[in-house]
């Protein structure tokens, strides 16, 4: 598929392996090798972002509709003007222009958030908590109800955590801690997988150990 020459491929694996080891050196301590890898990484990722922004946002959404032809759409000049306002921030005396752009951008997302958060997340989550108590689900439904109620109580900011409120929110904290413990345990798996992935690369792709 790819037309990379074998030399390019070999060089690639060695460079990739070298960079992998440079980053691993960080766990011993910060050192110039890691600093080099970090600086290189930062530069490459900035370049990657720039290239992606050009091809995925500017080219199709600005240049394409402003090129005379079937896709021509002069309305794009409006958001392009706002976009230029953002870039004009580099001139301090004009930096206030960017507020209009931010206002549109942020308020737009805020406006979309209200109906979608309520329809898409609040309603189903609350609705599915309203499950009937049955004998078959004695170890599920009541526990969920208790957990939801007590945890919500913990996030009540208008009441001091004293007396009954304090005790209920203490139960809530226990639920939160169980949840966090479980997440932590689950995550150990995720993190180890990543290391396994790198080790698989070093052993099998680079050193060529029998797989």
């Amino acid at each position: 598929m790819t037309e990379v020459t074998p030399i390019g491929q070999l060089l690639g694996v060695w460079i990739a392996a070298g960079l992998t080891l440079l980053i691993f050196s960080f766990i011993y301590k910060d050192n110039p090798a890691f600093k080099f890898a970090e600086a290189l990484f930062l530069g490459v990722s900035l370049g990657y972002t720039a290239v992606n922004t050009y091809w995925n946002s500017i080219a199709p959404q600005v240049i394409r509709p402003l090129t005379p032809g079937v896709n021509f759409d002069a309305w794009v000049l409006l958001p392009v003007f706002l976009g230029l306002c953002i870039i004009l921030r580099v001139i301090p005396s004009l930096s206030w222009l960017s507020r209009m752009a931010f206002a549109v951008y942020i308020a737009g997302y805020a406006g979309m958030a209200i109906p979608n958060e309520i329809s898409g997340r609040l309603l189903p989550q609350v609705g599915s908590t309203m499950a009937p108590f049955t004998a078959a689900t004695w170890y599920i439904t009541p526990v969920i109800l208790l957990g939801v109620f007590c945890t919500m109580m913990y996030f009540f900011f208008s009441l001091e955590h004293k007396g009954a409120v304090g005790r209920i929110s203490r139960i809530g904290v226990v639920f939160v801690m169980i949840s966090f413990g479980a997440s932590f345990g689950y995550t150990v798996m995720a993190r180890v997988s990543l290391l396994i992935g790198r080790m698989q690369f070093l052993f099998f792709d680079w050193l060529g150990l029998p797989n």
């Binding site: 060089l11 690639g12 694996v13 460079i15 990739a16 392996a17 960079l19 992998t20 980053i23 691993f24 960080f26 766990i27 890898a37 290189l40 990484f41 490459v44 990722s45 990657y48 995550t187 150990v188 993190r191 180890v192 990543l194 290391l195 992935g197 790198r198 690369f201």
Partner: peptide, 19 residues
Amino acid sequence: DNVFTPLAATMFSLLAFFI
């Protein structure tokens, strides 16, 4: 493939030690 990917993946895999 050979610079960005290994750097990102290795940086991420440091988490195994940290966790």
